[in-house]
Amino acid sequence: MISIRLVLTVLALAMTGYHIGRGLLWTAPVPAPILILLSLALYAAATWVCVFWGYSGGRMFTGHIGNRPVQSRDRLPMWACAVGLLTALLIPPTVAYAVGPDALTAGYATWYIGGIGALMVVLIVRRRPWPAWSGIALLSGWSMFLLGPWSALGLGLVGSVMWVAAAQFIVYALDRADRDTEHLGELQRSASAVHAAQGGQQRERRIQVQRALAVAGPVLARTIASGGRLGADGRLEARIAEGRLRDELRGPRLLDDEVREALDSTRRRGAVVTVLDDGGLEGLAEADLLAVRSELAATLRAARSQRLYIRTSADSDVAVTVVGRAPSTLGLSDEDSVDLWREIPRPPAGA
């Protein structure tokens, strides 16, 4: 696949070769051919430095994306910009002196107008607009001084200025395209994350519905079959099924088979159990959750309270709090009726 960087590099080299060829096509003897050859060599070297220095396989147009700076691997160093500006400063008067006053407007004497303009386009593409426009200012000043304003404009100065302006516009447009592409990528990643979260929530809801059907289905079937006339055992099973459903909805992260069995046993002896997950367990690893659930099941099996309240905790040291209350007795305060207080510690990080 041909990259933009390769295409622009080939174009820059082709333009450099074209202007060097124009400078070598002398249609009349020149007073100082060595100076012309040195000027062409300086121009070729400056173009080579500005095109290839820091060449990488990365993107040509990086620019600012959000608040991120331009990548330095494609931005021309300032010393290379200085080489380009030195070229724009030295070549016009050197060529004018070398060809003599009678040939200032000849094709082999005005090649530098387009050549330096092409070099400044390279600086624009390499993310150095201010040096590029400074070079255009030097080119304009020298060419108007040596050739006259109208002659300079007619011999290619307007084209050089327009090429630099067009290059800056294209670079700006590509930067905008980069920013838009990055923004669209972020939107796509956000949409994918939302879609994945929704999918997870849907799967969780399906699991909860299946558990609810598994728990309540048999009780509902017996209730319908008996016409709503349930005996003591039937009412007990209905109460236990209701408690299971509440547990699944209010505290699913606290539950496993061992905890569910302990909750059922506690309710069968007549206790009322409330399970609430108020958050705080999100950061625990699965092994830590298993340890917390195991200790919760052991606490439930040992409890003799008639009312049990199980709540998760956001405290850094406590994972779950279990509070048990005795049957209300005349003359006892709420604090006196608490006969169980168990704080299950949070497993230490990395344990």
Score class of each variant (00 low, 15 high):
residue 11 L to A: 14
residue 318 V to S: 06
residue 164 V to I: 05
residue 272 V to L: 08
residue 235 R to W: 14
residue 65 I to M: 01
residue 162 M to Y: 01
residue 70 V to F: 01
residue 13 L to H: 07
residue 308 L to R: 09
residue 192 S to A: 15
residue 164 V to W: 01
residue 132 A to I: 05
residue 311 R to I: 08
residue 163 W to L: 13
residue 25 L to W: 13
residue 89 L to H: 09
residue 54 G to W: 02
residue 79 W to F: 03
residue 221 A to G: 09
residue 1 M to R: 00
residue 307 R to L: 14
residue 21 G to F: 15
residue 119 L to G: 05
residue 248 E to C: 11
residue 88 A to F: 11
residue 30 V to S: 06
residue 303 A to T: 12
residue 33 P to I: 13
residue 345 P to F: 00
residue 195 H to C: 12
residue 333 S to L: 05
residue 48 W to Q: 11
residue 204 E to P: 07
residue 122 V to D: 01
residue 75 R to T: 14
residue 282 E to V: 08
residue 10 V to T: 11
residue 343 E to K: 06
residue 205 R to K: 06
residue 304 R to M: 08
residue 98 A to L: 10
residue 189 R to P: 01
residue 345 P to W: 03
residue 63 G to F: 13
residue 291 A to Q: 10
residue 266 T to W: 02
residue 211 R to S: 03
residue 328 S to Q: 14
residue 106 A to M: 14
residue 191 A to T: 10
residue 262 A to D: 04
residue 297 A to E: 04
residue 62 T to K: 04
residue 15 M to G: 09
residue 109 A to S: 15
residue 291 A to E: 15
residue 213 L to W: 11
residue 248 E to N: 12
residue 83 V to R: 05
residue 173 A to E: 07
residue 121 V to N: 00
residue 182 E to W: 04
residue 302 A to L: 02
residue 217 G to E: 04
residue 201 Q to L: 14
residue 140 S to V: 12
residue 66 G to E: 00
residue 317 D to C: 06
residue 291 A to R: 14
residue 172 Y to S: 05
residue 24 L to I: 14
residue 340 L to S: 05
residue 164 V to K: 00
residue 317 D to H: 14
residue 333 S to G: 15
residue 107 G to S: 15
residue 137 A to Q: 07
residue 214 A to M: 11
residue 175 D to H: 06
residue 221 A to C: 11
residue 279 G to F: 01
residue 87 T to V: 11
residue 34 I to A: 13
residue 180 D to N: 09
residue 247 D to L: 10
residue 223 T to A: 15
residue 299 T to L: 04
residue 7 V to F: 09
residue 209 V to A: 10
residue 80 A to L: 08
residue 294 S to W: 01
residue 305 S to Y: 02
residue 265 S to G: 11
residue 266 T to V: 13
residue 168 Q to N: 13
residue 336 D to K: 00
residue 119 L to S: 02
residue 297 A to F: 05
residue 179 R to N: 11
residue 293 R to C: 08
residue 230 L to N: 03
residue 285 A to F: 06
residue 94 T to C: 14
residue 2 I to G: 02
residue 2 I to R: 01
residue 155 L to R: 11
residue 269 R to E: 01
residue 59 R to S: 02
residue 333 S to V: 11
residue 159 G to H: 02
residue 153 L to Y: 03
residue 103 A to G: 07
residue 143 S to C: 03
residue 248 E to P: 04
residue 159 G to E: 12
residue 136 I to H: 02
residue 288 D to E: 12
residue 256 D to K: 00
residue 15 M to I: 13
residue 206 R to E: 15
residue 72 S to Y: 02
residue 182 E to I: 02
residue 96 A to L: 02
residue 180 D to T: 13
residue 288 D to M: 00
residue 22 R to L: 15
residue 223 T to M: 12
residue 93 P to F: 03
residue 215 V to N: 11
residue 80 A to P: 03
residue 32 A to R: 13
residue 26 W to D: 12
residue 339 D to F: 12
residue 59 R to D: 15
residue 26 W to P: 13
residue 108 Y to W: 15
residue 42 L to P: 00
residue 188 Q to D: 09
residue 51 V to E: 05
residue 99 V to Q: 06
residue 97 Y to I: 15
residue 68 R to V: 02
residue 289 L to H: 05
residue 79 W to Y: 04
residue 244 R to A: 15
residue 97 Y to G: 10
residue 297 A to Q: 07
residue 325 R to W: 04
residue 30 V to Q: 10
residue 274 T to H: 06
residue 109 A to C: 06
residue 90 L to C: 12
residue 75 R to Y: 01
residue 154 G to T: 08
residue 234 G to L: 13
residue 195 H to D: 10
residue 184 L to C: 01
residue 269 R to A: 03
residue 100 G to P: 11
